[in-house]
Write a protein that binds this DNA or RNA. Sequence first.
DNA 1: TAGTGGTCTAGACCACATC
DNA 2: ATGTGGTCTAGACCACTAT
Lengths: 240, 240
Amino acid sequence: MAEAKYLQIARIIKKRIQDGTYQSKDPLPDQEALAQELGVSRLTVKKALDGLERKGFVYKQSGLGTFVLGTIPIHEKKDIPTTGFISLQDELERKDITNQVIHFSIEFPNEKIQKNLQIKNNDPIYNILRLRLENDEPLYLEHIYMPISLIPHLDYTILNNSISDYLRDTLNLKFGIAYRKIRATKAKKTDQNFLKAKENDPILELEQVVWLSNGEPIEYSYKRNRFDLLNYSILETDNY
Amino acid sequence: MAEAKYLQIARIIKKRIQDGTYQSKDPLPDQEALAQELGVSRLTVKKALDGLERKGFVYKQSGLGTFVLGTIPIHEKKDIPTTGFISLQDELERKDITNQVIHFSIEFPNEKIQKNLQIKNNDPIYNILRLRLENDEPLYLEHIYMPISLIPHLDYTILNNSISDYLRDTLNLKFGIAYRKIRATKAKKTDQNFLKAKENDPILELEQVVWLSNGEPIEYSYKRNRFDLLNYSILETDNY
DNA sequence: TAGTGGTCTAGACCACATC
DNA sequence: ATGTGGTCTAGACCACTAT
């Protein structure tokens, strides 16, 4: 089957917002009108708008209409959305991002990794340390642990590009949920070396466990970000 | 009208998960069975489950069923969800949280605040500095700016309790979206004084703009958190 | 009063996973 | 072949907002 109708509708409406057909703060046509015009039921339009609301394109006021959300004042280029499984390059408009694989090995997991990946001590894992650079300046250091059982073949070519693209497009794995945790910590020696962080610089750390849609943990990782080059951003909506 | 049916259904199912009626990793009854049992349509059950999935109680596998999500391994007590407009006390199981109002004044906004609250330079604002303590130990320092025009009467009693409860329950204001940004910074003198932070301690900062459901900005604020006492957490789902 | 979005139903068909 | 969740429809009624 083709892409779901509500996703197609969402894309059409999103395009109209981006090309200025629907202007900031203006009301969109009402759901019934959009449904008629696009040849779908009202519920399908509503579902599309619900998604666009969650993504921050529109907001709705019961009894009034649906409106285009204006520019967010505190938004900066270095804000990275914490939502979505999209790779960094897509989400950010940062073109010159490169990878540098610092370490790549196969090991038995320690207790913490066993717990986080829900595996046994004799289930081997990949241990990856990767540095991300923007215009040759270090952005963040990424420690990744993944079970071999789910990913039979991983090599430097994949690590130098996108692991998530490989999992999704080549292995056809489907991501489920992710639990992410953001904290501030002090720079360690490793951070000082690879990130060119100073001794008393803070580090913005994102630790996460990612599950496949069948409930199996696929990745435990933490990124150690340069505090001055990255923020994490969240757009919150009331949408149940 | 009473609470929406899908929210009632969600609450019932959530309770069954929490009291162990549905065990971790077990499948729930299928949507049709739940619909029959609870006397609603299948779509209403689905909507309830969609919400529970976004909140991390269950996960669904098309063609297989809906399952109770097990405990999240990296979850800690000091993780604070970045989602929802719920006050800190409700969300955390931290009982002994107190407020200490350090500064409270009415002023004209500077340019940054004008921009973030979308107001003019002669629209007065509240300027609030509040310290949050847990068992008399400082947790975070909160700088809050809000337009007076939307909040006619604010006093120390309200500031010592919950501002958001006052806005919601007394003024009947409805929250719309919030844009939040998380960064790591260095401790300033203010942080050292009030948070008992050391000179080279990092600070975990959350900066945010909160809008009402009618699109008017109601709050610009930033919290400066002790790096060792708080993390922010995000639960990510595929849910469009 | 009119117009908006929110909810809900019954029924249908589809894609997907398992047996 | 069967059972699961995902999508979609047409129609209905409700709550809220503005005039």
